[in-house]
Amino acid sequence: MKITVTIFLLTLICTAQNLFAQNEFSRQYNLALKFYDEGKFYDAVTECKRLIFFDADSQYTYCAYMLMGKSYKMGAKFSDAILNFTNAELNAKTSDEVFQSKIEIIRANILRRTTDRALQLLDELDDDKNFSSRTAGINYWRGWTYIFADKWKKAAVSFSKIDSCKQLEKLCRQVDDDKYSETFSYLISHFIPGAGQIYTGNYVSGILSLGWNVLWGYVTINSFAANRIFDGLIELNFLWLRFYNGNLQNAQKFAVYENQKIANKALYFLQFQYKGLKP
């Protein structure tokens, strides 16, 4: 009886020790994770690389590549991040892991502003029957892709397909409404020089532009009227048309600039005040 109890106790102790003994690779992954959490992304990448190099059975390869990708992303090295997320996708063992890695690739593409690639990947996910239950997630990132591509109307359409994204939809619609039409600003300046600048709220520039065009228009027409054709041609070419053309470019430039200000204000809000997931 005594021997039986002794053997039983020994078994219990040794089994517990072995069961709770942490696997070396798991420890290594946690070390990398710790560096990542501490913002030491370079060290996190080093430890992930070490893990992948020694993990012959690829137990942690997927996780390590994902963590490496995230570390590179935090360092704004988006191309390296995408490379690692792609490696993670290649080492994914479940459809959930495939989806997660693909979404990370899309998010890095959004930040890298390679919009076409992000949209292409989102379309692929949309067409894949394995992910038919994840439409909301796909539309969510499609919306963000459009935001970063400065296509706020399309972003609003994408967010409108998700019930929980009404705030984002409203914001995108607001930005789209607030923006000036670059084409309209350019066109009205053809008819009334300076009108495009006034339309975008740049009154001084608009009036100055109108003044220059009136002055050189008058001088040019006056020359033609006095039969000084060569004078008129030179004034037309070097003065009036130069200011007229400058007025057109300026009108468009102001519209772009004002639109950038509106978009940046919205992006600032999204960066610092929006609480949901961001690229």
């Binding site: 020994l10 078994t11 040794c14 089994t15 072995n18 003994a21 070396e24 290594q28």
Partner: peptide
């Protein structure tokens, strides 16, 4: 006893010190 203590030890021996 030997199965529960020996087997994990054998696995552990295969673990490498990175």
């Amino acid at each position: 006893f030997f199965f529960t203590t020996g087997f994990p030890q054998a696995v552990k021996q295969n673990e490498i010190n990175l």
